[in-house]
């Protein structure tokens, strides 16, 4: 049998990246401040993790405006959704093995 650990996505090792992915899975679009509040991280930290996810095409970024202020929203891509599901399945298999 294949080792389920191989299916775990290295990108989701980080609590912050996993948090971002979980939040965008169930929301159509979240902006930077909403994510920051949810995950409780500093701006710089969140920005760098968002960048990683964006580079892997797991999330897409939409820049917009509310009045004069910029409002950047993040949402999940098809690739991201697939990767997240695979990761969840791998976690599930690992837990089954433990039990």
């Amino acid at each position: 049998m294949k080792n389920p650990i191989e299916n775990l996505n290295k990108i989701f090792d980080s609590r912050i990246r996993l948090g971002i992915m979980s939040a965008v899975m169930v929301n159509e679009g979240l902006n930077f401040n909403e994510l920051k509040e949810l995950i409780e991280v500093t701006d710089g930290n969140l920005a760098s993790h968002l960048k990683t996810l964006e580079e892997n095409e797991f999330i897409k970024v939409k820049k917009g405006f509310i009045g004069r202020k910029t409002n950047t929203t993040y949402s999940i891509t098809k690739t991201g959704e697939k990767a997240f599901r695979t990761h969840l399945e791998a976690l599930e298999q690992m837990i089954r093995k433990l039990g």
């Binding site: 996993l18 979980s22 939040a23 169930v26 929301n27 995950i39 837990i95 433990l98």
Partner: peptide, 23 residues
């Protein structure tokens, strides 16, 4: 650097984030 999480901790984390962000 962050340490790797156990699968249970990961699932707990995912669930919490999904609930907190949507409810």
């Amino acid at each position: 650097m962050e340490t790797e999480q156990s699968p249970i901790a990961s699932i707990h984390n995912i669930r919490q984030m999904m609930e907190r962000s949507s409810r």
